[in-house]
Design a protein around this nucleic acid. Sequence first.
DNA 1: ATATTAAACTAATGCTATTAGTTTTTGTTT
DNA 2: AAACAAAAACTAATAGCATTAGTTTAATAT
Lengths: 194, 194
Amino acid sequence: MPRKGLSKETIIDAAIELIEEQGNHAFSLNELARKLEIKPASLYNHIENMEELTGAIGYRIGGMIKQTELDAIAGKSGDAALFALCDAYRTFAQEHIDLYKVIMGMQKDKNACTEAACGEMINPIMQVLSNYKITASEKMHWQRILRAMMHGFITHECAGGFRHFPVAYNETYHMAIETISLGLHTAEKEHRNE
Amino acid sequence: MPRKGLSKETIIDAAIELIEEQGNHAFSLNELARKLEIKPASLYNHIENMEELTGAIGYRIGGMIKQTELDAIAGKSGDAALFALCDAYRTFAQEHIDLYKVIMGMQKDKNACTEAACGEMINPIMQVLSNYKITASEKMHWQRILRAMMHGFITHECAGGFRHFPVAYNETYHMAIETISLGLHTAEKEHRNE
DNA sequence: ATATTAAACTAATGCTATTAGTTTTTGTTT
DNA sequence: AAACAAAAACTAATAGCATTAGTTTAATAT
């Protein structure tokens, strides 16, 4: 029954291509329809509405980040894996800044999609944290801390929120990871003294 | 010359009131004009455009957060001041979540306003960091780390990005601050050994 | 061949920010 | 007090947005 080989997945493909080509700002259902050579209204045969589509795009981007992280930590362990993961995350955001802004935009409206998109990115982090001798609940906490730090850093960095002082962004990011590493090792030590 | 006592400041006042009453989502120039009892087009006698207005609102919110932080750290020093500041920041975001979302939205478009809004919030943080014996450039780095962590945490928390695991948000936040405190104290120690 | 149905279409709605041009009001100057 | 200048309101229009209802097309299944 499909006149073109159109599906939700191919629509998301096109959307991501569009965002990377024209920028997050230029993205709209009109523009997406033009790219797919259909009329805007026809999109509603495949998607619920804009919010759902955005969520699906965000989920896809989450998956891309997850894969990038997995590739980065492959064969590594301990602090090396930690640093590799954090660097990979930031590099992805820098190289696909318009895609990352989709995730930024989603966070304004709390919905199930945001939860799902974030869920994608948790797995590699938990894998990295498994190298540290901490409890299961500690792992849940540190996973949050890592994600908060990485996301907060990137949003500030790319919005100009860090421009006020003349010190290198790379160095700050490195210090932040170092700090988390220190915290993790301290937690390990405390368990040894119990 | 003003027919009503309208100015850029009173418009921002009304905008903030509107956002707190109706939510960030319902905010528009139409709604703002209705509240001020003028026609939407008349707003352009006072503002450049939507982006500039949003920036001005963000700047104002930045000032509110700054004041909240200053109040929170008054009379405190060291780690007590650090914890008080971080708690005040998060509490403000929770109690004025729709205002905080304005800042979240601004970060998608890099502009001078974002830089200015963030600039407002730096002062109290630098004040807190002055209690630690670290170098000037270290202070610049730690200021960024603190802001990244706080902002990243709040965006995730309020968007549902932390829902995956059954551990308390408060505890995670506390651990994050503790970690930064540990990092600061470690930096102090390293200077003593030089 | 016929019936079914997904997926396209057209057309319209009501929202958004924004611009141009006009009128009203107010404060200043003659 | 009368005239002028300018700020700030207005009306009217535009182009874009997401979205809905109703209709037609085209491909598949019977």
